[in-house]
């Protein structure tokens, strides 16, 4: 239960941080548009995500599968 609270608290704090955002114009996005800044898992992580799906019970919310489509957990 403590773990659950800690997780929700961490997400809550991060969400609170988003309220402090500023408008960023297109010409100011050179760093945001960097390939390494893309808000998704890397293509090279594709098969790593597959083995997590087989070797661990928790899945989803990371750009990979959340179950189904394979004989995995």
């Amino acid at each position: 239960m403590n773990n659950q609270r800690a997780g929700l608290l961490a997400i809550g704090l991060m969400l609170l941080g988003t309220s402090a955002c500023t408008t960023v114009k297109e010409y100011q996005k050179n760093r945001i548009n960097d390939a390494e800044m893309e808000l998704s898992a890397r293509k090279s992580e594709k098969f790593e995500q597959n083995f997590y799906l087989y070797r661990e019970g928790a899945a989803g919310a990371n750009g990979g599968k959340s179950g189904g489509g394979c004989g995995c957990n």
């Binding site: 991060m14 955002c21 500023t22 996005k29 945001i32 800044m37």
Partner: peptide, 9 residues
């Protein structure tokens, strides 16, 4: 959400 010129979530 883009938070600022360097940070996005």
């Amino acid at each position: 959400q883009i938070i600022n010129k360097r940070l996005q979530v």
